[in-house]
Design a protein around this nucleic acid. Sequence first.
DNA 1: GATGTTTTTGCAAACGTTTGCAATTTATTT
DNA 2: AAATAAATTGCAAACGTTTGCAAAAACATC
Lengths: 336, 336
Amino acid sequence: MEQKKLKLADLAKLAGVSTSTASRALNNNPVIKQQTREHVQLLAKKYNFSLNTAASRLRLQKTNVIAVIINLDAHTEQSIDDPFLLKVVSDINQAVNRRGYELLLSNSYMAGDDWHGYFIDGRRADGLIVVGQGKQQQNIDTAAKNGAPLVVWGDPKTPSEYPIVGSNNYVGGYQATMHLLEQGASKLLFLGDPGHAEIGERYRGFNNALDAHQAKGAAKLLKIDITSQAAYIAINQLLISEGLNFDGIAACSDMVALGALKALKERYVSVPNDVRIVGFDDIAMADISHPSLSSVKQNTQIAAKLLVDKLLGQLNGEACVSQEVEIELICRQSSQ
Amino acid sequence: MEQKKLKLADLAKLAGVSTSTASRALNNNPVIKQQTREHVQLLAKKYNFSLNTAASRLRLQKTNVIAVIINLDAHTEQSIDDPFLLKVVSDINQAVNRRGYELLLSNSYMAGDDWHGYFIDGRRADGLIVVGQGKQQQNIDTAAKNGAPLVVWGDPKTPSEYPIVGSNNYVGGYQATMHLLEQGASKLLFLGDPGHAEIGERYRGFNNALDAHQAKGAAKLLKIDITSQAAYIAINQLLISEGLNFDGIAACSDMVALGALKALKERYVSVPNDVRIVGFDDIAMADISHPSLSSVKQNTQIAAKLLVDKLLGQLNGEACVSQEVEIELICRQSSQ
DNA sequence: GATGTTTTTGCAAACGTTTGCAATTTATTT
DNA sequence: AAATAAATTGCAAACGTTTGCAAAAACATC
């Protein structure tokens, strides 16, 4: 069944026109007679013709590809398994496709340090979407400085040369905390590492909510990695060393919250009776957990669309700015 | 900071050699004098030179890209949020990178029906990895028949023209079921839709284990979608309509198991005392759930490597066959 | 029917690599 | 030092599109 690949010239010959006419016909160029266009397009369909994108990209200096770079902190060569991050990628993929672009999935392993050179100069993609600011923004900054069309999923409040799209983490942290306090919790724990920009904002919201409630004194920060394992261990240790000296947890992610939840349940601490918990992200598991987990929902679909809009905007020479996406507190059993 | 993109000819001029020499030098062609090679390579590094892949691909008729197609059943245009599937993609990404290829993330939305035409003839990728056989294998079959280098993640036992890599689902189902029976469960429930090839194999293992244990009579199949929601609803309804008439569940995935677990806990059915559960996949949540979820672990990393090996093998003209990856039962609290 | 206008098509160059082959330089032998 | 062999480099063509410009065809006007 392997037949020689049809090239545009062959198709043109079949249609009895020149390659240039065939090219224009396929692109629906109105300068070509309607009838000719239809004729060529019909033949193209009939023979399953498809343009050689390599040639097309070379000629047009445009790839119609967007690279998505997963920018993780330490685990450089590690496979991602954070369900939230993957959800973000999946939503971006969809948003990218809707605009007729393809998605090159990448990471620091392939791209090296010079993202502009690799992706843009290398004509692998027309623009970059970076997921996660990481703690080291060096690569992002230089890529942007070198003129790479670029948008970032992260903390929109961070000053930058490039647009950052992300949730209103401050309000998220504030609302989650306020909710815990209103439900009667008074000795709160913040679970996460505020050194990370987005989590820092959430922590700021946490503190401001405490202030507004005049409850600052009884709060505590437990600085841990963003993994359920770390949360599980940290809560376990805390219970062992200090006993149950808190009654509310604001977690920096759902995975972290679920790790904490497990530790509590294993030690027969009742949630939400003894301790109330609110997570962040609203991953699918939050709803399935028992008790179901209250969470601050990040609207990744809207964010993904914004990221792509802003990136394509840049390709059109428009100036684009950072933007926050509103979040929403989803109250479930773990906090009521 | 935007300077004109350096092309190979420019670099050659800087190095005082011809483009052909520069090209060969960059590719470390031993026909070029060692000293010249180093000189050119040094300049390339200094000026952050990168080849125009569009031109390169056109000339070489090779893209160094592998397309991964998420082949879902119904939800054609829906974003994926199955954590296991995403894990598979992430592991494939890594395996692909290790072999020096890039990963184009795609789906039926972009590719249409003629995958060979779109990806291979269109010179978007050198080969395809299809994740999920789906119920409709039409597209895969014709792509393979048209000569597209192609491998599939799915049920390796399905007869096919192309290599399928996947877990030994039969053994997985058998082991999980045997384990439940050995732990004392006798009235079992299988949760999932055996119409799906992989799940069908698991169900076959389920039945054979029952046979081997002379416990066939007391088993029941609950045919549901592969979502935690569906499982939650199904178990709830079953409990309402028939009461607790089972003491063991073999679920077709962890998400399904967790949905069932939630329904049970809400109705104060104790796991594992009243009902023992084993899931499938061993996603991160299995370990974090409370009680932690026993599960049949699919080794996605090994599978991903095999997929890529077999695909690149095909590119080299080797004949490749389907292969099963061994699974492993991870016993946790939910079944003991 | 000659002229001008508009619509439609084709020629040929360009995009930036890679590579077969010929040409040049360097090393080896007589 | 000339002749031969070996190592190194450069010329030029090719990969398959797209597009500016000119040419041809169709149509309109006098």
